[in-house]
Design a protein around this nucleic acid. Structure first.
Length: 228
DNA sequence: GCGACAG
DNA sequence: ATCTTGTCGC
């Protein structure tokens, strides 16, 4: 299980409290590599929603893949009612609680988790990936399919990358993973450097736009939704 | 006031 | 996020 945390880090009563919690958490993010010598297991995290769902449930999934073969080593899902609404900039408060439940039941733990969402490429430097990484105490990388804040357009070829700039600061990498496809926005989540994060994401692309662990997590989250 | 706005 | 088949292009 995960160590005890300030209640408002997971269940803030309102946006103002959530904002204050983000400031507390942002100060604890480690943006430097703190990884095992060899990354043997890659994690993927994603959450799916049901359209027009009056029950407001979220369906989270965490998967662990063998870094060498892409085989799924473990997978866990969690469906529950979200106790926080979707508000741009506060995604963690809606999705992290369910993902933490997934983590507690994940039989094989990954060395690092690729999260479907922003890391430090966030208005207050605390996107979903940072939030999850800090709560779990695990290295994470933010891998978003679109941008929240920042500017930067990479070249057309796979591997082309450019700094994602915001207010004069580099907050992430706009990364082209596939020709003709929109870029991915990679940023530091927790216990990893931007350079390592960018290199790792590109390495698990396999010629497609999305990173393999995230595709697997997306599939698992959808499976959790179709069941309960 | 207006436009932008991860999943 | 989600609703959805075929179709255009490399």
């Amino acid at each position: 299980m995960v160590p005890d945390l300030p209640p408002h880090w997971l269940h803030p009563p309102d946006i103002a409290t959530a904002r204050a919690a983000q400031a507390e958490m942002a100060a604890r993010i480690l943006p430097e590599d703190d990884l095992p010598d060899c990354i043997a297991r890659l994690g993927g995290a994603d959450v799916s929603n049901t359209r027009f769902d009056p029950a407001k449930r979220v369906h989270a999934a965490l998967v662990t893949l063998d870094a060498a073969t892409d085989a799924v080593l473990a997978s866990s899902g969690e469906s529950r009612k979200a106790d926080f609404p979707y508000v741009p900039g506060y995604l963690g408060f809606r999705e992290v609680p369910a993902l933490r439940a997934c983590w507690d039941r994940l039989s094989v733990r990954p060395d690092i988790i690729l999260v479907d969402g922003q890391g430090m490429a966030h208005p207050r430097g605390l996107g979903l990936a940072c939030h999850l990484g800090l709560v779990l105490g695990v290295p994470t990388i933010g891998v978003a399919k679109s941008r929240l804040v920042g500017e930067g357009e990479p070249g057309p070829d796979p591997g082309d990358a450019t700094p994602l700039m915001w207010k004069g600061r580099c907050i992430g990498t706009a990364l082209r993973t596939r020709r003709g496809a929109r870029p991915l926005y990679v940023s530091v989540g927790h216990r990893v450097s931007l350079a390592t994060a960018t290199r790792l994401v590109l390495a698990v692309t396999r010629g497609r736009r999305l990173a393999t662990p995230i595709r697997a997590a997306h599939d698992a989250a959808n499976a959790a939704r179709l069941q309960g």
